[in-house]
Amino acid sequence: MSGEGDTDMDAVQDPPPAPPGRPSRLVRMLERGTTVMLLGGVGSLVLSFLALGVVPTIELTHQMNQSTPASWKPMNAEEQLGFTVYKREGCAYCHTTFVRDIPSDVARFGPAGEAWEYRDQYPQQWGTRRVGPDLSRESGLRSDAWHYAHLYDPRSTVPQSVMPAYPWLFQQQPGGGAVPTEEARGLVAYLNYLGRAIQVSGAQTERGRAVDGSTATRNHDVGPR
């Protein structure tokens, strides 16, 4: 910063001494702007997207085409609306929707997720954090009435829950009480869609069968013992 006295200025005026040893050609090449931009910026991008984008995409496409059961149906309009609400309110940031193929996950939630289950999700909502439990095996686990009460006021069904309430998904009635809007109905339909396909068809790949062949939904409140 301020060591910039006259001495330094004098040093600047000196002719540069001859370099002790010239860097090798490879090093000089690697320092060049064009190398950094083409090999570093473009090259590593292409490499990473080929190796970890394109190759697994081809594999997954093939695998999904093989394993999707005939009974699989994409979301209907109501479930699609619910999916939109699910994304808009950021549900995936506290609830994952894939069961990992490890014992503690499978024991708590049910069979591990399979790729074909997600083939109509744009964009995927797997999530990277679980404040609440995973929801991918939610279908049939609870009644619609429970879901509505829980969405309207989570503390009414789970007293210690920290989930936000979603009153704007309900229409307040003049005499008290609330009626679910189309969005709330869609959201509950979507929650019931999650995991239905694998319950109907059973696991289709080694992955889903690996730990436990059962496709029964589990009560995730209590995990493995």
Partner: peptide
């Protein structure tokens, strides 16, 4: 622009400027 040796990052090769950048203090 900064006009001192202290301000500009030195030559990456550590070569020519290294000795001249040895502080005076």
């Amino acid at each position: 622009p900064p006009r001192t040796t202290a301000e500009l990052p030195p030559d990456p090769s550590g070569g020519p400027s290294a000795d001249r950048q040895a502080p005076q203090h």
